[in-house]
Amino acid sequence: MSSVAFQRIIRSGFNNFKRNSWLTVATITVMFLALFVLQGLLIFSVVTRSVIDSLQDKIDISVYFKKGVPEEEILIVQEKLETLEEVRTVEYISENEALARFKTRHSDNPILLESLAELDQNPLQASLNIKARVPEEFASIASFLDQGEYSNSIEKINYFQNKDVIDRLTRIIGSVERGWIILSIVLSAISVMVAFSAIRLAIYTSREEIGIMRLVGGTPSYVRGPYLVEGALFGLVAAIMTILVFYPVSLFIGPKISSVIPEINLSSYYLTNIFQIGGLLIIVGVGLGMLSSLIAIRRYLKV
């Protein structure tokens, strides 16, 4: 296609966009709603991920070593654990560190601290605090320790006491993840279909014109071009509207989310990532507009 033909297609697409004003407004409104839902899903996916990560971060197991086990041996166990794929982090807490943390935690309980001072030696044991990549893997980590060569040095693994709680949390996390994925797929599919239908309707109203252009000698690509440009403009304007409208919405609902999940600041997250989110939304909007036009126009080109 020559550059002159390309320029004419672009110009004609802009003219269609301007001249069919009511159709343009109606199509952009529907696409805006569809993109708004898609953007909401995207942002809340991040929020959900953050909640799940925060929950998972709170789950750990501790391995307590018997009194007298040398620090070198515990550090070897730590190194071995760190080589396991299932393990995310391993923190070594020496007897002295455990005592210091205990004192800090109970600094408002002088009786407890006095009782502790009366003891001849530190009653607390050295331990390893282990976090897994996913909570389902705690069982295999606990089993690795319980049946491994260092099992004789281990006093206690608290996984076996906390197993029920960990399992319940794992199930909740799994359900939230699965539910969110299903909801996202369903809502995304509905949004895409709604946007596609809006553009299909816009093309349907132009079906006679498309036929005329073909009868006058327009090649399919020349006839199709302006409608692709128009579809891209629908998507672009709808995406920009979505980006602009979502900010005040995030300011409004952000505090409500923060009151439930303090780690999340929706408006701040949105502003920080505005270029990535906006860019993605524009790509999705323009792509959806063009693809919908491309599919919708096909049947009317067969003249």
């Binding site: 020559s2 002159v4 033909a5 004419r8 003219n15 269609n16 001249r19 069919n20 006679e208 014109e209 005329i212 252009m213 009868l215 006058v216 000698g217 327009g218 090649t219 020349y222």
Partner: peptide, 24 residues
């Protein structure tokens, strides 16, 4: 008639020349 309703008289006529690859 089969005219293109969102194009002016000039544009309707010009369309036939555009598709024939005529220059501006």
């Amino acid at each position: 008639f089969k005219l293109l309703s969102n194009k002016t008289v000039f544009e309707n006529v010009a369309f036939a020349m555009e598709v024939a690859g005529k220059n501006d």
